[in-house]
Amino acid sequence: MNPMVEFCINRLTPDVEEIKEELEADPEVDVLETACLGNCEICAQSPYALVNGEIVTGEDGEELLQNIRREIKEQQKKWDDLLDLL
């Protein structure tokens, strides 16, 4: 199952739009654009996205992308560790 990255349409600034497009080009990531993700306070303060439901923020688009990629790796490691236990 691919990680799901969700973006709020109200926060699609040019730098966040670039991130969204880059992630959409990655066949290992599913991307969704939503009218509102219900995190308006965060949305008003900084670029953000949800990675499998977890809030990921950044000071700018570049940092957001780095943090999204880091969160995807951390979540994948947790899944791998869990599967190793089974």
Score class of each variant (00 low, 15 high):
residue 61 G to L: 11
residue 38 G to Q: 01
residue 53 G to Q: 12
residue 55 I to M: 08
residue 69 R to K: 13
residue 76 Q to N: 08
residue 70 R to Y: 10
residue 60 D to P: 12
residue 47 P to M: 02
residue 10 N to W: 09
residue 19 I to W: 13
residue 9 I to C: 04
residue 53 G to F: 07
residue 58 G to R: 10
residue 41 E to T: 06
residue 45 Q to A: 14
residue 39 N to M: 03
residue 26 D to W: 06
residue 9 I to F: 05
residue 4 M to V: 14
residue 51 V to M: 11
residue 44 A to E: 06
residue 38 G to K: 02
residue 35 A to C: 00
residue 40 C to M: 10
residue 5 V to R: 06
residue 30 D to K: 11
residue 31 V to G: 12
residue 74 E to D: 03
residue 2 N to W: 12
residue 10 N to Q: 13
residue 19 I to C: 11
residue 8 C to I: 00
residue 17 E to A: 10
residue 68 I to S: 07
residue 19 I to P: 00
residue 40 C to N: 06
residue 5 V to D: 02
residue 65 L to T: 04
residue 70 R to S: 12
residue 73 K to Y: 01
residue 71 E to W: 03
residue 35 A to S: 05
residue 34 T to P: 01
residue 30 D to L: 14
residue 34 T to A: 14
residue 33 E to T: 13
residue 86 L to Q: 00
residue 48 Y to Q: 08
residue 3 P to G: 08
residue 57 T to M: 14
residue 23 L to R: 00
residue 24 E to R: 15
residue 21 E to R: 13
residue 37 L to G: 06
residue 13 T to C: 10
residue 15 D to A: 10
residue 68 I to R: 06
residue 12 L to Y: 04
residue 59 E to L: 15
residue 9 I to H: 09
residue 10 N to A: 14
residue 83 L to G: 03
residue 20 K to C: 15
residue 67 N to I: 04
residue 78 K to V: 07
residue 48 Y to D: 01
residue 74 E to H: 04
residue 30 D to I: 11
residue 32 L to G: 08
residue 45 Q to I: 12
residue 70 R to C: 05
residue 2 N to E: 10
residue 74 E to T: 05
residue 47 P to H: 06
residue 75 Q to T: 01
residue 70 R to P: 00
residue 7 F to G: 01
residue 54 E to C: 06
residue 42 I to S: 09
residue 54 E to L: 13
residue 84 D to W: 02
residue 70 R to E: 14
residue 63 E to G: 11
residue 8 C to F: 03
residue 85 L to G: 00
residue 45 Q to H: 13
residue 32 L to F: 07
residue 20 K to S: 13
residue 69 R to D: 03
residue 74 E to K: 06
residue 85 L to W: 00
residue 48 Y to S: 07
residue 30 D to E: 15
residue 33 E to W: 03
residue 41 E to V: 11
residue 73 K to L: 08
residue 65 L to M: 15
residue 30 D to H: 09
residue 77 K to A: 01
residue 62 E to H: 15
residue 57 T to V: 14
residue 22 E to F: 09
residue 76 Q to V: 02
residue 48 Y to P: 01
residue 64 L to T: 02
residue 55 I to D: 11
residue 33 E to D: 10
residue 40 C to G: 07
residue 31 V to T: 12
residue 69 R to G: 02
residue 3 P to H: 08
residue 63 E to Y: 11
residue 37 L to N: 04
residue 3 P to W: 03
residue 16 V to I: 02
residue 52 N to V: 05
residue 73 K to N: 05
residue 8 C to Q: 05
residue 6 E to S: 15
residue 15 D to P: 08
residue 62 E to F: 15
residue 20 K to Q: 12
residue 36 C to M: 02
residue 12 L to C: 11
residue 47 P to D: 04
